[in-house]
Simulated scan of single mutants.
Amino acid sequence: MPRKRGERAGLTREQVLDAALALVDRAGLPALTMRALGAELGVEAMTVYHYVPSKEALIDGMVERLFTAAHPAEPGPDWREHLRRYAHDLRAALLRHPGILPAAVRPATTPATLDAVEAGLRALTGGGFALGTALDILNTLTLFVLGHTAAEVGIGPEPPAGLAELDEARYPLLLQSLRSGAGTDDAARFTFAVEVLLAGFAATLPVFFSAAVVVEKEPE
């Protein structure tokens, strides 16, 4: 039986998506075309369509690769640990592939991405959150990770030029921070913010409010 178009290449969908990520990291998202991706893989552009039917599906698949790598496959017994791992793994994946950041805000559409979201929702609803609140929490945390990582990539590791020449009398605390490094570590700031978000999410649990109810004093 003759093989279908694309099978001669000996590729997998995952290899195609990873090659697309590498291309975007090197040349930027505007440079991503089926022809350019085919050249990256050493195949004709039509072969790429065997694995992804359109450029939109290709970009959705690239986003899928990042989010499924970050989301734990199954919800654990502790929703905090599930979200903590997700946040740190997603940041790491985005820092490895910063070229995809402009497209990372796309809604989840592929089955694998939706499976990852479902696992997060199971972790949160299993921890006592209402479904709507659980979805709000996932979206809030995801948008924070995307924004923080985009800022890290855009600003870079070095402080903006000219800050070291600030007026000492006017900006003593800013200069002290620059010289000591206090508050300038991206990873430490990210970890701090994630822990604050987790604490805030926990404070919305119904059990938190019921435990905080003041018991009326019995009449003497």
Rank of each mutant, 00 (worst) to 15 (best):
S210N: 10
A22M: 01
A103I: 04
E195N: 13
L173N: 13
R3C: 05
L173M: 14
G28W: 07
Q15R: 15
R189H: 13
E64S: 02
A187M: 09
A104V: 09
T125C: 02
T125S: 05
P102R: 03
V105S: 15
A203I: 05
L205T: 02
S210T: 15
D60W: 01
G120N: 06
L94S: 03
H82G: 08
E56V: 09
A123T: 03
A182V: 12
T33F: 01
E218V: 10
L178S: 09
L174A: 15
H88V: 10
R5S: 06
F192D: 14
R170H: 08
A169E: 15
T149Q: 04
P107L: 02
V153H: 08
Q15C: 04
D167P: 03
M34G: 12
R8E: 11
A27Y: 11
H82K: 04
G61H: 01
A103R: 01
H71G: 05
G10I: 06
L174T: 15
L95N: 03
S177C: 13
R85S: 14
V145A: 06
M62C: 11
L146N: 06
L94M: 09
T204M: 05
G126H: 06
R35S: 12
S180K: 08
P157Y: 04
V207K: 13
A134H: 03
G128Y: 09
A20P: 00
I137G: 03
V196F: 12
H88N: 12
Y171W: 15
F192M: 14
A92N: 07
F144D: 08
G28Y: 08
A203T: 04
F192C: 12
Y171K: 03
V214C: 02
E7N: 02
V207H: 10
L131Y: 12
F67V: 15
R13N: 01
G200T: 11
R84N: 12
P111S: 00
G10S: 04
T33S: 14
P172V: 05
L197P: 10
A20H: 00
R65S: 10
V196E: 14
E168Q: 14
A203W: 07
D60E: 12
D89R: 15
G200A: 10
L121S: 03
L135Q: 13
G183V: 12
L37E: 00
V213S: 05
T110L: 01
A103N: 01
P157V: 06
V145W: 07
L101H: 13
I137C: 05
A19E: 00
L197N: 11
